[in-house]
Write a protein that binds this DNA or RNA. Structure first.
Lengths: 201, 201, 201, 201
DNA sequence: CATGAATGAGGCTTCATTCAT
DNA sequence: GATGAATGAAGCCTCATTCAT
């Protein structure tokens, strides 16, 4: 990864980097990037403050690294989930992806928080993050539109509608209410999306 | 307003407060709360840095003040727009509110940015902001559900779906692309929402 | 001056800048640039450490500023001394300049130390400093050579010979022995230079 | 040598110490003592950073060691050169010594740089370095004065005049211009010195 | 009301040095 | 002998806030 200063060469080093990342992810989520001091991170990681700088050139790089890394993982998991299902119904795949999204975010609330605040920590990455997701959606939507599965609405805007729904529902349930949405609730949201998207609901 | 230290007593004072607020709104949107120095604000406002503290007890208060003030104004405008229309179709009122939202946000991109980052500047206000909007929606939705106008889905989650759509569409168009969505585009988004919500589309 | 961040606008500010410069000049001479902390400077100047940064963007700039400022002053004083004498004998002017040099350096031992160490603090300025002096000498030497006053030796190298003599004599007397060379001693050094330079000693 | 922690006991150790010294000499000359990190030295020497501390107790000791070692070598070479010539003319011996000086310094620009900056790294050594050279000169000068070879000027000051000339000429040619002075140029400088010193030029 | 110089606590980062392997 | 990850004291610099004018 490009934001890292030194790849650990020993087991111990690997362990240390992992501890830094975990601590940083937690703290960025709990207190936000700016309110988190490097000393907070190293304290929680149980290392000295100089050690942080063996692995990262500065505080911002660790933020970018996490954003990249976690975003990567999320996309990978969603892709994997979709590939398991031998369906070519976009809506059914989307239902899977959405469930995966909530599962991942509830286990990595750090990602959610990190992305949310990245608009003012590192605007470049912020935009890139959403556009990468969006372009994945656009492809799927266009395919499904060709098949006549979903309605001929602007794919780019639709992708942001979907992301908006997922993000704000996650905000309400995970951040505000502190619990995962129930299957029943997810089903209702999916039902809203299905009707909105499908040519023949 | 509660976050203000001293209400201006003269014309000159009023003018000064207005200049501070305008500058702060712009800067919080451009650079974010943390990257904005009080000196940046006073510089752009064309005043000396001590003057800021005549009106606000500290930097955070000015943030809260703006968030409150702008949120208030937005809700007022939306309410006003809806009251002009003598319809009792929730969906038609919602279409109006949504247009008002995009108009307001494109003129006050500061509000958008301020709210977005408030999760890590002032989490209390952040939650309050969205829940206030949400509870307004919930009322309308429940009324409409009683009338059989819209489907019997969880009103709280629906409200976050709507806010998510509006916020992410605004993010894409106003922040990323730097332009208001066209009427055509808004119409498509509304069409998605209508089908998703209405009992008989 | 280019290395300064903010020109003081009030009497108090002027006073503060002066105190910073005096303290820095002393400390750079006593302990060297690297061993001098900004906190040392502000402590000696009797101000808080943040105040330093009102006037200088960083520690290095204060060093450059002093080097420029003091070098400027030295050249000005030497020039002034030479202009008072209505002679066109290069050697007599040189005798004056040399005396001025020792007087100035003994009052501003800071300059001496600053220039000496600048080779490793700010190599650019270091070279510029000596080449500026050298080019002044070269002109004078060439004029005197045209008049047949001094021998036809390479002017650039001669200029460095002269500077070398003055600097090392100052090193011995002012730095090592802690006293100004006596008139008698200066006279002997001049006598060495005179014989070395003059066509007809 | 006194500044060394442990004399190498094996061939490998000897080799390692040599590599450290070479790297340190280069780096102290290129970037200066303070800007050179121990890690820079070990990196260039191709060893790990802990190894440095097998041979030196700390960074400063390596500086002192080099200064001593190189100064020693320089004096030895000059002495050897002078002993080869069966002359008892101080000026002729001096001409030899000077040529040796420029040869040595151009091959060990590190020494030049190290001594120059030692005033602020290790003032003690700095003074000692020049006074050791000076006292050698004083003896030679006094002898020559007794013989009536050179003029009866203050020997201590004369020694600093000579060192000043050599050092500043080396500065100009080797450091600023990056080349050794030509024989012709050295000859001119010698001619200046000869006339300045000799009773009967 | 307004000014802007001054404050100083506190954050980020560096780097000489140590030590377990 | 050699390694290189870890340490942590310490320095540079920032910036919200104060206050004398």
């Amino acid at each position: 990864m490009e934001y890292i200063k030194q790849q650990p060469k020993t087991k111990r080093g690997e362990e240390t980097l992992r501890k830094i990342c975990e601590a940083a992810e937690q703290l960025f989520a709990e207190k936000g990037y700016y309110a988190t001091e490097v000393a907070d991170i190293t304290r929680r990681a149980g290392i000295s403050s100089g050690t942080f700088y063996i692995y990262f050139p500065d505080k911002l790089s660790s933020f970018r690294y996490l954003m990249d890394e976690l975003g990567h993982e999320l996309r990978k998991e969603i892709r994997a989930a979709k590939e398991e299902l031998p369906s070519n119904s976009m809506i059914e795949l989307e239902a899977l992806g959405m469930r995966k999204f909530f599962r991942f975010v509830s286990e990595h609330i750090g990602l959610f928080a990190i992305v949310w605040q990245s608009q003012f920590v590192d605007p470049e990455s912020f935009k890139k993050y959403y556009e990468r997701f969006s372009s994945g959606y656009i492809n799927e939507i266009q395919e499904a539109q060709k098949r006549g599965e979903i309605r001929p609405l602007n794919p780019a805007y639709l992708s942001y509608c979907l992301m908006g729904i997922y993000n704000f529902v996650a905000l309400k349930s995970l951040v505000f209410d502190g619990k995962e949405p129930s299957d029943e609730e997810l089903e209702q949201i999916l039902s809203f999306i299905r009707r909105g998207l499908l040519e023949k609901p």
